[in-house]
């Protein structure tokens, strides 16, 4: 019992931040993301004995979270207008230039189609390889690599075409 508790706490400590960020990029809502993470870890606790390989913990948790997210949509459809700025959290009014840029890029990431964003989040936040992502999303590796390419390409194009507009912000 005690060792299970210790294992669980270590798992939460190590992975809750990544999991929360992943959840956030999946649902674009702080509170929903938090609920998803809570639900995920609760399920993880109940099934902790089935986790044999600690290295696989992250992808295991992400799989649980994706299922949990899918269940949320089964229960009810959120009629959020997709990717409105309202769904993107405004960090601080007094943010510095770096924050403004982050915020701008966040919007772009949020505007990306889900199928491009998800592999990119898994790659950048999760640190997973193309193969691992393919496994988690049940896609083949070439598809994942193509989506990753398109995702980055879109962001690159956005960054390349935006500087003038952003320049205006900064006076």
């Amino acid at each position: 019992m005690a060792t299970k508790q210790v294992r669980y706490e270590a798992l939460v400590k190590a992975l809750h931040a990544d999991l929360y960020r992943y959840a956030y990029w999946l649902c674009h809502d702080k509170h929903v993301a938090e609920d998803l993470v809570q639900e995920t870890f609760l399920r993880a606790w109940r099934a902790l004995d089935s986790l044999k390989d600690e290295k696989a913990a992250k992808s295991w948790l992400i799989t649980i979270l994706r299922r949990e997210n899918a269940r949320r949509f089964e229960r009810k459809r959120f009629d959020m207008s997709e990717y409105e700025e309202a769904t993107i959290t405004d960090v601080k009014a007094t943010s510095n230039e770096q924050e403004i840029e982050n915020q701008w890029l966040r919007e772009k990431i949020a505007q990306m189609p889900e199928e491009y964003r998800e592999p990119l989040v898994l790659q950048v936040i999760g640190g997973f390889s193309g193969e691992e992502i393919a496994k988690m999303l049940s896609l083949n590796k070439n598809t994942v690599m193509t989506r990753l390419f398109r995702a980055r390409n879109q962001l690159k194009e956005a960054v390349d075409s935006e500087p003038k507009l952003r320049g205006l912000h900064n006076g």
């Binding site: 931040a17 702080k30 993470v37 959290t89 840029e101 890029l105 966040r106 990431i109 990119l120 960054v159």
Partner: peptide
Amino acid sequence: KIAQAMNIPVPDDLYNKL
């Protein structure tokens, strides 16, 4: 930049809540 943008702040008390 992407990594920084994606690195959204995690609620401080999330760990304790979990």
